[in-house]
């Protein structure tokens, strides 16, 4: 446990030193405040629209941003150590591969969690203080749900980045594959799903289709933050499938947790087989 914390602590202090943590938090806070303030711009006025609309807009942006940040943070976790010659050295220390990998995850995961908490937390407090007649209780619940799900989404992409990082031999390759992961889950997946839906002309088993949404952590994340307001009116595109999904919020949370547990376990299994 001590070794895990030593590794995590180094990652955390690295992201403080190179100002990643503060930069991410600032981006989040700016986005959140900006969206809160200009959220109603589409309807011709400036000001706070509503908590569900704000969260929905934030989640839509988060889908693009969070995976990208997580992948950038973590893609060189193992391959970077190898290029610097420190992976070989670390493995001669009383430190197992599992401890190294989970220590890295703890460090990167904490970095992202802290940045999310600070960034969106500050924004949430600002909204609560500055916007008149906002229901603070509902806002707090929505913000908390948003922060936790954002963190979990980030963790799943950190774990996915590790799968790449333990497998490849060069940093640029890892960066390329990380971008491919982002591209696939954020842009391609929904298109594929829609395409399947249209091409099958309704012959595709309608009970199976909603489950496919669970194969993409970004869709789970969107469902969690948008469906939570339960009127369902804001669901569009593939997300409307989510309304048919027979799992409740608990199921969605579980799915999102599994989305970092499984890739992380996979990364560990691959790392164990890596030749050093």
């Amino acid at each position: 446990m001590n070794s895990i914390w030593t590794i995590a602590r180094k990652e955390l202090s690295d992201s403080l030193r190179n100002r990643w943590l503060i930069a991410i938090a600032l981006v989040f806070a700016t986005l959140a405040v900006g969206i809160a303030w200009f959220g109603a711009a589409a309807s011709g006025q400036v000001g706070y629209a509503s908590t569900p609309a704000t969260i929905a807009s934030l989640a839509s942006l988060g889908i693009f941003l969070i995976p990208l940040i997580a992948l950038l943070l973590a893609y060189d976790a193992i391959v970077g150590e190898e290029e610097g010659g420190t992976l070989l050295l670390l493995m001669t220390y009383p430190l197992s591969r599992a401890q190294l990998l989970f220590g890295k995850f703890l460090g990167h995961g904490l970095t992202l969690a802290l940045a999310t908490l600070i960034g969106f937390g500050v924004a949430g407090v600002a909204i609560a203080l500055l916007v008149e007649d906002v229901a603070v209780g509902a806002l707090a619940v929505a913000m908390l749900r948003f922060i936790i799900s954002t963190t979990l989404l980030g963790w799943s992409f950190i774990a996915l980045a590790y799968v790449v990082s333990v497998r490849v031999g060069e940093k640029p390759v890892a960066a390329g594959l990380a971008l491919a992961i982002w591209f696939f889950f954020v842009l391609i997946f929904d298109l594929l799903l829609l395409g399947t839906l249209v091409a099958s002309q309704g012959e595709f088993n309608p009970d199976l289709l909603p489950w496919l949404l669970l194969l993409n952590p970004t869709d789970i994340y969107r469902l969690l933050n948008i469906v939570a307001f339960s009127d369902g009116a804001q669901l569009s595109g593939v997300l409307s499938l989510g309304a048919d999904l027979p799992v409740g919020p608990a199921g969605l949370w579980l799915a999102l947790v599994l989305w970092f547990v499984i890739p992380l376990t996979g990364a560990w299994a691959l790392f164990r087989r890596r030749r050093i």
Binding site: G84, G85, L88
Partner: peptide, 8 residues
Amino acid sequence: PENVMFYP
């Protein structure tokens, strides 16, 4: 080790 760069 023969060639170690450490953390710059």
